[in-house]
Each structure stands twice: as C-alpha cells, then as structure tokens.
C-alpha cells in the first residue's frame, strides 16, 4: 500500500510540454480513476508512476520516497496495459511467473503463487496454454494475474477494459471493484470512459490538456462540477449549457433534471421547443428538444412524446448550475446567484 505524490511535475515530448508544473496526491488504498479525453495526459501520468515514461522535471513520490531514479521493476508497482502486453511466446504460467523469476523468488514458492493466483482469476485449467489460444477476456485475466502475483503496492491500469465487448466489460468492472476491496491496494486506473470512472472510482481526477480540471468523488463531480468542462464531460448525455446574459454567464442543467410537458410548467426555468429526435432506450427515452436558439437534451422515464410535437422543458431552481465567463462554476452560495436565477426565469419568454 502506498500513496503517490506528484510535485511540480512537467513532462515534455520534443520540447512541447504536455503536462506543466502539476501537483497531485493520490491517496493510499483508494481506487483513483484518471479520466479525460484522448491526449489529455492521463496515460502520461500513469507512465510516470510506472517509470516507463519518466517526468522531464519535478518529483514523483511513492510511499513518501522519491522514485525519480528508481527503475520501473524496483518501484513496487504493477501495470495492466490496454492491449494486455502478454508475452506471446510464453505460456500463461511463464507469463505470470516472469516477474517472480526476475525477482529471484524460489521455484517452489513461484509454483504455489502462480497456481493460487490462477485460481483467483479463473485461469486454473489454462496455465499451460499459449496466449494465442486464449479469448480476449482470458488474456485480460492473464494480464491481471501477472500484475497481482507480484503483490505490488500500487496497481496501474491503462484502459484495461477497452478491448472487451460491452457485456464482459460490465462484468470485469464489478470484478475489479471487488478485487480492489479485497486487496485494499492503491489502484490508479486510466480511462476515457466517464461511465467507467463514475462506476469504479473512489476519487476521480478529471484532466484536460494536461491540467487537472477537478478532483473529487464521483457524486461531487456529478452534482457540483467545478467548471463547464467537468459539467460536459461527466454525464450521458452531457449537461445542457445555455447563454444567460451579456456578461458571459452560462446556465446548465442535466438532461435528467428536466421535465417535459405539453402544457407550460410551473418550474423555475421553462423553455418552449419542439421534439427533434427521440431515442427509446427501454427503461428511458432521450429527447432532443429544439428551440429557435439551440437544442437541449432531456432524459425522461416516459416515452409519450413524438417527434415534431411542441413541448415545454421545465427545470427546478435547485437543479440549475451557473458558470462564469471563464467557465468556472459560480457557487450557489454566491450573492450573484439570486440575480442569475431571476435571469433564468426570464428565459421562459425567449
């Protein structure tokens, strides 16, 4: 178990800084998910922890120890790669054993460890197979077993589920949560999928263009996004954003916070529009409501509106978010919020 600290870390590729003066503390024993669009620097952070893509400047500390000059194999970390990186010429057993052999673990103990891990991840009967004879899900398990067998203090995972089919992905998500609970080790997980981040994380670190946008629990990030980027990245469909006034303030509401009706609604915000598209997903329906200015997404448990029907979209005051011209969240306790709420009421006639 170990905490990870980044101190004033900069990483450049060919003199272009991808990450600049970043400070971040990843708590001991927590399941931390680094999430963001591709190219945001999340994998770069992970590789710095592993030591396979060291920082250009600054310090990385694992368990309080500066590991900047420690070789990847000596850091006490294990990593699961997106494409699993299983050694194709070695059997499953040899794959799992490779790290132990390099760490000079005696043969008897190796055998015992490999077999017990094989059982844990459900590979018992497959230990002597070559990776080419395994399915995607089984390869994934080999990669996990290979990481687990070393008993690392930090688990690093780089989009480990992205090559699995949707059903298996959901199953593995649950298994990873259970694994984390069982091991109690620090997990650092990289993904671009906000659903994965929301469902698995104790703490989400949301990144964009090498800068941390918000670091908080999934609930906090969903209910109180720190800025427009967070508001639009987390949530599916993303938060609706609309211009509010001349000072660049914007208003936002989640598709699931809005109600739809054929009659004008008594909600704080009430917008009139026409249903442009309708996606029936079974348990819910997602509508796109178009006004003369823009379109809003609305998620509804009911499926009773047809395309081209005029409707009203209503949102209660407590479900409204406000963002300043700089994109940052305007705190609901701020004195300006009352003024913005009034302005939002005015949108009825817009």
């Amino acid at each position: 178990m170990a905490s990870i600290v980044f101190e004033q870390v900069t990483k450049s590729f060919d003199r272009t800084a991808i990450i600049r003066d970043l400070d971040l503390t990843i708590e001991d024993g927590k399941f931390t998910v680094l999430v963001g669009p591709s190219g945001c620097g999340k994998t770069t952070l992970l590789r710095m922890i592993a030591g396979i893509g060291p920082q250009t400047s600054g310090r990385v500390l694992i368990d309080g120890k500066d590991v900047s000059r420690v070789a990847p194999g000596q850091r006490g970390v294990a990593m699961v790669f997106q494409n699993y990186a299983i050694y194709p010429t070695m059997s499953v057993r040899e794959n799992i054993e490779f790290g132990l052999k390099n760490n000079k673990v005696p043969k008897e103990e190796r055998k015992r460890l490999v077999e017990s891990i094989g059982e844990t991840v459900g590979l018992s009967g497959l230990l002597d197979r070559k990776p080419s004879a395994l399915s995607g899900g089984q390869r994934q398990r080999v990669a996990l077993a290979r990481a687990m067998v070393k008993k690392p203090s930090v688990f690093l995972m780089d989009e480990p589920l992205s090559n699995l089919d949707a059903k298996l992905r959901v199953q593995m998500r649950v298994e990873l949560i259970e694994l984390h609970k069982k091991l109690g080790t620090t997990f650092v997980y990289v993904t671009h999928d906000q659903t994965e981040a929301m469902s698995m994380a104790d703490t989400i670190v949301l990144m964009n263009e090498g800068v941390i946008q918000q670091m908080s629990s999934p609930a906090e990030m969903y209910h109180r996004p720190a800025n427009r980027f967070a508001a639009e990245f987390i949530g599916l469909p993303p938060m609706n954003i609309a211009e509010l006034g001349p000072d660049g303030v914007q208003l936002g509401f989640r598709p699931e916070s809005a109600a739809l009706s054929e009659e004008p609604l008594d909600h704080h915000l009430c917008i009139r529009g026409v249903i442009a598209t309708r996606e029936m997903l079974g348990s819910e329906t997602i509508y796109q409501v178009r006004t003369d200015k823009q379109a809003y997404m609305v998620r509804s448990a009911e499926d009773r509106f047809e395309v081209d029907r005029p409707v009203y979209v209503g949102v209660p005051a407590e479900k409204l978010h406000f963002f300043g011209a700089d994109g940052r969240r305007i705190d609901e306790r701020s004195s300006d919020v009352r003024w913005y709420l009034e302005a939002a009421r005015g949108l009825v006639y817009a």
Partner: peptide, 15 residues
C-alpha cells in the same frame, strides 16, 4: 514488436 511488451518486461524487473 509493441513497445508495451518491453515496458511490461521492465516492470517485471527484467534486465
């Protein structure tokens, strides 16, 4: 040969 294989081996403490 994918870079990840070499990186994975380095993480496995291979010389």
């Amino acid at each position: 040969i994918p870079e990840e294989l070499v990186e994975s081996a380095r993480l496995d403490n291979a010389s």
